[in-house]
Design a protein around this nucleic acid. Structure first.
Lengths: 337, 337
DNA sequence: AATAGTAATGCAAATGTTTTCATAACCGGG
DNA sequence: CCCGGTTATGAAAACATTTGCATTACTATT
């Protein structure tokens, strides 16, 4: 109704008390007499007053926001992570300031700055690999910061996530132990994506660890079912077909599976396919996908706990490893003779 | 380095100018002499000063944030929408304050309040169906508000999206025109989800419009591949099998397709399957999914344009309809005789 | 060299809260 | 009825900026 937005002074006047009392009635209700509190509440409702967090924030009071900077939102797995992080964080009253940088570490730096301008109470980044500027900025501003998704003992900041090297290693040994020797790796671009790079490294080490020196064909593919499908179709058209296709993530694996279905190639009879991630849907794919489970929901939830604890100072910053787990389903089998 | 965070006064002192000049050097650089600007910049860098948007905001300056409240993030289609909205919005310098309410309109109201406390410059909600409290709040605070995803002429606020009734209608007439008479509708829960409800209504109207009174079996299923797969498996075990399964969205359709693959039922030979949404991956599914395209990316981008225009006052608020489009691929065919 | 005009800067008030300290109101006991 | 002790409230300073107005410093013109 009123053109000007109601402020605490207007409420005070309407309730015939001082601004201080109104403020107290919000922040320390027990300090104000129930009857006046009621009067204030009525005034608040009548004027449609909404507290101004910006004004509180300049008093050193927490802004109630946590910055979350991700490479991209539009990916099954990050969506799941963001969801669980956001849920857990909201429970403690925080709101998320979200931004995505599209795998550019420079943009990530700029976004981090912007988050700090907004005086977020904490900030979470995906992965371990960030611009040194970003690390310096975070260190200097001493805003609680947390790395999500990856885990490494020697990370420069506390981190909550899975060891992606280990995830790759798990599929490497699995595939090698099934006797596969001609293997194609279908991975997303490695640039600015430490997760993928580590998985690939783990994979090759895992394959080698099992003895022999398997023939590993590497194939870089954008993150999409369509691209993976296309890539695998080409792969199978080549003279020397791989007997196993290991994919950098489940989406790529889905693409591979569709390509093979289209070509009438039997999975896992003729070729083995594996993913990494265990996204929604992989379990119920036909055939069900063998993959490595990265516990996205758990990571989001635990990360939220960790960062809120860092903010409130309730607990010291503490890294947390949520181990990946090999899940053998119906797309992997012994290599054909 | 410094324990206390640097403020504009510290910068002013370090650059031996007044705070006003520092402020101006940020906001109206043309008003300050290049040489002093340089001096200030050096001081800023040396002290690691970061502007405090909270302090600016209480001057009526925009907060530079836009609130986005969605039912859930962890869904292919919303993730895509959030991504494109966020990209477009970031381009104009805004940052997104994100929250999800899990299909509870009460929580949505509470979140809206919280966003207003943060003094977002604008606020976007998904769908047309909201608590009257929410509408009143928005009206009273006269914060620019926008409804995303759905389109309706008579919406109580400007909206940018697709007509979901029409989307349902498109598949209804398509399926009916193929001669199907025994049809199963696999839809998510309708409660608090006007999109799904409108699609279903459109579907039944579309089916009827084509003459005859087809036998429509309705089946409510949570939003997941697993649940849909299960539901369709049960559906096909029943004595009287449907010849077409129309799904409320593509994820459900994927589940249906997997169930049918598992049962060895031919698609589209024995049964037709349709989705709604045209998510990433539907095109490359094997067989490729017949669906209705809801242009999520376009909606996000146009919505971002619209709301930033509302905020800056550059253009009057304007609803925008992005029409859904029937995409016939490989999962739909004439009903078997 | 004085002056007008402009460019650059500083001063101080204002923004919407919270909080410390001070004061006023109240309550029961002597 | 007064007094000590709570309990409830108010006044004013503080928070980190921006901005209108005033002032100072230049520049160019006469």
């Amino acid at each position: 109704m009123n053109d000007k937005k109601a402020d605490i002074l207007a409420v005070a006047k309407a309730a015939r008390v001082s601004p201080s009392t109104v403020s107290r009635s919000f922040n320390h209700p027990d300090l104000v007499k129930p009857s006046t509190r009621k009067r204030i509440d009525r005034a608040v409702r009548r004027l449609g007053y909404i507290r101004n967090r910006a004004a509180q924030t300049i008093h050193g009071i927490r802004s109630g926001t946590i910055g979350l900077i991700v490479p991209t939102i539009d990916q099954a797995i990050f969506a799941e992570l963001i969801q669980s992080f956001s849920d857990a964080v909201e429970e403690t009253g925080f709101t998320i300031l979200l931004a995505s940088h599209g795998y550019s570490l420079d943009r990530e730096y700029a976004l981090t700055r912007k988050m700090l301008e907004h005086r977020v109470d904490g900030i979470a980044l995906i992965g371990l690999d960030h611009a040194t500027d970003t690390y310096e900025l975070l260190a200097q501003q001493n805003t609680p910061a947390l790395l999500l998704w990856n885990y490494a003992e020697d990370a420069p900041l506390p981190c909550v996530g899975s060891d992606n090297y280990r995830a790759g290693h798990l599929v490497g040994t699995h595939v090698a132990s099934l006797g596969h020797r001609h293997i194609a790796a279908v991975f997303p671009p490695l640039h600015g994506n430490d997760r993928a790079a580590q998985r690939l490294q783990g994979l090759t080490d895992g394959l080698r660890a099992h003895g022999g020196d398997p023939d590993l064909l590497q194939r870089e593919t954008p993150y999409s079912v369509a691209d993976a499908k296309q890539a695998v179709a080409e792969l199978m058209a080549a003279p020397r077909r791989p007997t196993a296709i290991v994919c950098g993530n489940d989406v790529l694996a889905w693409g591979a599976l569709h390509a093979l279905a289209r070509l009438g190639i039997s999975v896992p009879g003729d070729v083995t396919v594996t993913g990494i991630g265990d996204f929604h849907g992989s379990q119920d794919f036909e055939p069900a996908l063998t993959t490595v489970r990265i516990p996205a929901r758990a990571i989001g939830a635990r990360a939220a706990e960790t960062i809120t604890a860092m903010i409130t100072g309730d607990a010291p910053a503490q890294s947390l490893a949520l181990p990946p787990e090999l899940i053998i389903r119906a797309t992997s089998a012994k290599a054909p003779a």
